[in-house]
Design a protein around this nucleic acid. Structure first.
Lengths: 187, 187
DNA sequence: AACATTCTGTACTGATCGGTAAAATAGAAA
DNA sequence: TTTCTATTTTACCGATCAGTACAGAATGTT
């Protein structure tokens, strides 16, 4: 396939950072050009569907990254290691709270309607994978689901709070708390 | 003073719902006019500073509401009742997860830079009030602060998750969990 | 070298953006 | 009723929006 001047795959992470910084509506084409270093012509060459296709591709790549780094470890590793892998991946991905969750951000305003399937799928898949690991850890089914939902809530909330306060502590505390909470039933 | 055709104070809640639905950038003047039923001229008559003043007024009213309904009960009531009042007010305000937290939403993208003081102040004030109540409940200082931060995280995260899944359950579960968690130290 | 493909820069579109100005109207006060 | 102020309507501004068209440049292939 050889080397192209710019690869579509190389552009997606740059687009992701632009959407993170400005939100979907706030990420204008000119800002996307600025962040990617590409002209409008190039962007539309890679993403003929425009902004919506760009954001869709970003969501797809995020989903893919979590599938490999979080969901599959939860599915396939022994549950203690799976949970540990999840927490390590989450801490690294969100840079200890300095980086936000784009899926969560999209969920809050009417951007959600545009990407409802991707947004819902991301959280549902995560919750199922974590719930499964917790069940194998010994949690009863309902308890496992509740704990999994609570863990996702705590992570999302910690990202909001860390951003709001400009302070990594809420996120770091949450990772610590989850490390303890997700060990054994009834801890 | 008598009745005006439209009162500034009446407009703010309508603006709030528009910003909630579309985000700061997504809430265009035309959408704000639509949601408030006012023309551009009227909106600029009440808010000469334009969109930024409108959003600032909305944040101010939110802050005021929480001050009376949440922060002061936490400060002044016996701690058990203060915490109960907080949880009841939160559940009512966020409509069991169907309504998002505008302050949290603003915190996620670069809108935060515009309203950094209001965003930070809202969460800091809340955390301090809750932390004080928890200390009076018997939590050690550091523990009380940690629990307060965790509670705010959980609420924010539950709002994100409930919106993302289109499902009130994450929010309801979180309120239930907090009701238990914030009773006595070491529960 | 010649060619085909992929990528990029520039110029353009119509629509909408946030914001302004001022005339017209409604309401309260006298 | 007159007067004064508060509110609304309408028209308008330059800037930027998302998106298109296409010629030219870079690259890979033969």
């Amino acid at each position: 396939m050889a080397r192209l001047v710019a690869e579509r795959a190389d552009v997606i992470p740059l687009l992701a950072e632009a959407f993170r910084a400005y939100g979907y509506e706030g990420a204008s084409l000119s800002r996307l050009c600025e962040k990617t270093g590409l002209g409008k012509g190039s962007l539309y060459h890679f993403f003929p569907g425009g902004k919506e296709e760009m954001a869709g591709a970003v969501l797809g790549e995020i989903s893919h990254w979590f599938e490999r780094q979080v969901f599959q470890p939860l599915d396939n590793l022994p549950p203690v290691e799976g949970v540990a892998a999840m927490l390590a991946a989450v801490d690294a991905y969100f840079q200890s709270g300095r980086r936000i969750c784009l899926v969560g951000a999209f969920a809050l305003d009417d951007t959600r309607d545009r990407f409802a399937v991707a947004v819902n799928g991301y959280f549902t898949r995560w919750q199922q994978a974590l719930s499964g690991a917790l069940q194998r850890l010994g949690f009863a089914d309902v308890e496992a689901e509740r704990h999994a939902r609570a863990a996702l809530s705590m992570i999302q909330g910690a990202l909001v709070l860390s951003r709001a306060l400009g302070n990594e502590q809420p996120f770091r505390d949450t990772i610590t708390a989850l490390t303890a909470q997700l060990r054994l039933p009834g801890a």
